[in-house]
């Protein structure tokens, strides 16, 4: 499916852009010490990244277009069979799955844009300017959250058009939209730390599309595989969203999702921060 899309990244040619330099100057104007400065720097960086990503075809395609397409195709082609065989409407697994796919695969695009920023020397420039040290990473995190939220909102709307219904009112629906963002932080840290260095493995990362409880319920996998399928990061998030929209326990899968998101941030956040600092310290 998208293995080929992923394995054929089209890195944009590095070119210094005047808007990047202007952004650097604006960030520089806010000072570099104190919590207020950290927040302002993070906000500016997040806004700049989001504008940048919204013009990046790879990020847009992987975050919104491909998952929406996948949602429609899975719904049309596999939906009836899975619903008939499992007795649970497949849409409550497919929408969460495609939101998470948009979050994770889009992170491959944002990871690529981070490399470009490094190679252009932009990170190094931010580093020598009077910018709060936390501004860059925190801004990136904020931007990843916003990107994940965008994927969630758009795909939920598409889902509503093809049969997704919320049975537990507005608060549960809002929860449905926000839950994937919990995992998005961890996925962003993971991709920043690892995936940008190993992009050839993209076709293997497709496996996470299939091996979770969103594609078909965990009970439909072979018995020995079920513990794995229930444990992978996507599954608790899918189960939380399924429960919020349709049926099932919310608390336990939500806590598992939190644990996955937090765990990934703790483990890979450290690596990502080190990488960020190294990237800022050298050019190319």
């Amino acid at each position: 499916m998208s293995a080929e899309v992923l394995s054929r990244p089209s890195p944009p040619p590095p070119r210094p852009s005047s808007s990047s330099a202007a952004a650097a100057d604006r960030v520089a104007a806010t000072g570099e010490h104190g919590l207020a400065a950290a927040l302002r720097c993070a906000g500016l960086q997040a806004g700049w990244l989001l504008r940048r990503w919204s013009r990046d075809p790879l990020v847009l395609a992987q975050t919104l277009v491909f998952p929406a397409f996948l949602l429609l195709v899975f719904r049309a082609v596999l939906g009836d069979s899975i619903t008939a065989a499992t007795g649970r409407d497949s849409i409550y697994g497919t929408v969460p799955l495609t939101v998470l796919v948009g979050t994770a695969f889009g992170a491959l695009g944002t990871g690529a844009s981070l490399i470009t920023e490094r190679d252009q020397g932009l990170l190094a420039r931010f580093h020598v300017l009077p910018i709060h040290r936390a501004g860059g990473p925190a801004g990136r995190l904020l931007a990843e959250l916003a990107r994940s939220l965008a994927a969630s909102v758009v795909l939920t709307l598409v889902g509503l058009a093809v049969g997704l219904r919320f049975h537990h009112g507005v608060p549960a629906a809002l929860g449905f939209v926000v839950v994937p963002c919990v995992l998005a932080v961890g996925i962003a840290a993971l991709v920043t730390a690892v995936a940008v260095r190993a992009r050839n493995q993209a076709s293997l990362s497709l496996l996470m599309l299939f091996f979770n409880s969103g594609f078909v319920p965990a009970g439909d996998y072979p018995g020995w595989l079920q513990p794995v399928v229930r444990a992978v990061p996507f599954s608790p998030a899918v189960e939380t969203m399924r429960a919020l929209a349709d049926d099932g326990p919310v608390l336990v899968p939500f806590l598992q999702t939190l644990a996955w998101g937090g765990g990934l941030v703790v483990v890979f956040g450290v690596v990502a921060l080190r990488g960020y600092r190294l990237a800022a310290a050298r050019r190319g």
């Binding site: 293995a3 596999l78 497709l206 496996l207 299939f210 091996f211 078909v216 439909d220």
Partner: peptide
């Protein structure tokens, strides 16, 4: 391999 395993294992039971 990825596509065969990815579709076969989850959907085998359904099918």
């Amino acid at each position: 391999v990825v596509f065969f395993v990815g579709f076969y294992v989850p959907l085998r039971g359904v099918m």
